[in-house]
Simulated assay, not measured.
Amino acid sequence: MSDLIINENLLASKIYYIRKQKVMLDRDLATLYGVETKVLKQSVKRHAKRFPVDFMFEMSSDEFKNWRSQFVTSNSDLMGLRYAPYCFTEQGVAMLSSILNSETAIEINIQIIRLFTKLRQLLNDETDLKIDVEQIKRKLEYHDKNIELVFKYLDELIEKRNVNQPRKTIGYKSDEL
């Protein structure tokens, strides 16, 4: 294999969040694999059984309009944007390597799968961090309540002390009194 390496930031910028899933679009994958979008779509259609809806779906017309409005494109820059793109989940991207059997597709797929795995790990780490922060908040809240209680008791003691009650003298007694 040639050592074809794509920048992780470039790959990450090609991952979108659609229908509460991280997906990559057919046109971006086609570019990365060095094939035309049309060729990629045809290959997917020929092997449709390999791509259930949790592997790949086509954007709805509303999703497509919304997605296109986020990217200002001229008519000359439509580059396959006349039709709603296919959206590939992590499993769909992995499945693409079985139908696009070029060296480039295999190498790019490996990098993409590693990036998805890395993103999943980051999400897990972030979730663990959120749990830790929540536990710390709960402890601090508990400590705050205890500190409030201590200050309340101190205030009560100070009030009792300030009440002018004759105090019993302590110390040595002399006969001169």
Rank of each mutant, 00 (worst) to 15 (best):
I5Q: 14
F64G: 07
K152I: 02
L4C: 10
K160T: 12
Y172K: 13
G171N: 12
Y83V: 10
A105C: 01
V93Q: 04
K65Q: 15
V53G: 08
E107L: 15
L25I: 07
K152E: 04
Q70P: 00
K38A: 06
L154P: 07
Y153F: 07
D128F: 13
D132R: 05
A48Q: 04
S76L: 14
K38T: 05
I170N: 06
L177N: 06
L157Q: 12
K145S: 13
N124C: 10
I5V: 15
N7D: 07
L157T: 06
D155C: 00
S74Y: 04
P52R: 13
D26K: 12
I6E: 00
T31S: 09
Q111N: 15
L81R: 04
F57T: 13
R19I: 02
Y33D: 08
S61I: 03
D26A: 15
N164Q: 02
K152S: 12
E8K: 09
K152P: 05
E141Q: 09
S97G: 04
C87K: 08
V39Y: 06
D175L: 06
K20C: 12
V23I: 14
R46V: 08
M1W: 07
R82I: 09
K160W: 01
F57P: 15
L81E: 14
F64N: 05
L32H: 11
R138L: 01
L154F: 04
I106W: 13
I131H: 08
M24E: 06
I99Y: 03
A12K: 15
M24D: 11
A94E: 05
K173I: 00
A94C: 07
D144L: 06
R167S: 07
L140M: 13
R50M: 09
K45W: 00
